[in-house]
């Protein structure tokens, strides 16, 4: 990747994905991390932890992503994941009204319980199922849409208005086509206030270090303290 370039200040950001089951949280992450998409992905169990770098002009953000399972029974574990998170992606399914209601609940819970400075992005996924997503001629697939002839059930305006009221970033994405996915993460990276970032050593600096076990542990150092805060208290 871009590690070989001159070291830029690098910092890690803990990011959590929340949202109803089957809205596409894991697919968004898979698209962002591996630029991949799987049809009929099986549901996440518990939570998955992934990392991905995001290069900004002035610095590198390393996202530590907690992709949580959307099923109701995992809801009680959510605080463990959003505690000390600097960013959250609250995802809903554009074609499923109940998923926006669930998303609003998550936003409220985050505003109540998560770190005060948390950056929240509201993301409407599955844009490929709507007319905007498939382009002008894409009305083949949807039998469910009544008004506009596509599967969209939540208008952009409705969600956008809500996002503005609550001070959230707002995007409509398609993990399937990849539309707007990187943009979401870049926008979050940009929105994280400089002050809340703990600057870590550039990855290039430690790259060449000899590999004794101690150094190997140290190498994780910059992230671990950060992470432990997020977990052990």
């Amino acid at each position: 990747m871009a590690d070989s370039s001159a070291p830029k200040p690098s910092s890690s950001v803990k990011l959590v994905l929340l949202g109803e089951a089957a809205v596409g949280k894991s697919s968004l992450v898979l698209r962002f991390v591996n630029n991949d998409f799987q049809e009929n992905k099986e549901p996440t169990i518990g939570a998955a932890f992934l990392t991905q770098k995001c290069n900004l002009p002035t610095r590198t953000i390393k996202f530590e992503i907690w992709d949580t399972a959307g099923q109701e029974r995992f809801a009680s574990l959510a605080p463990m994941y959003y505690r000390n998170a600097q960013a959250a992606l609250v995802v809903y399914d554009l074609t499923k009204p109940t998923s926006l209601i669930k998303a609003k609940h998550w936003v409220a819970e985050l505003q109540r319980q998560a770190s005060p400075g948390i950056v929240i992005a509201l993301v409407g996924n599955k844009l490929d199922l709507t007319e905007d997503g498939t382009g002008s001629g894409g009305d083949a697939e949807d039998a469910g849409g009544e008004d506009s002839g596509d599967a969209r059930k939540i208008s952009t305006e409705e969600a956008k208005t809500y996002a503005e009221e609550e001070g959230l970033l707002f995007f409509e994405t398609s993990a399937k086509t990849g539309f707007n996915v990187t943009e979401v993460f870049t926008a979050i990276a940009n929105a994280i206030p400089e002050t809340s970032l703990k600057t870590a050593r550039g990855p290039g600096a430690s790259h060449a270090a000899a590999r004794t076990e101690e150094q190997r542990v140290n190498l994780n150092g910059p992230r671990d303290p950060n992470a432990k805060e997020g977990c052990a208290c």
């Binding site: 992450v29 991390v33 518990g46 998955a48 932890f49 992934l50 992709d67």
Partner: peptide, 9 residues
């Protein structure tokens, strides 16, 4: 398929 590490109750 999810990739990454998992934490599963």
């Amino acid at each position: 398929s999810g990739g990454g590490e998992s934490w599963i109750p």
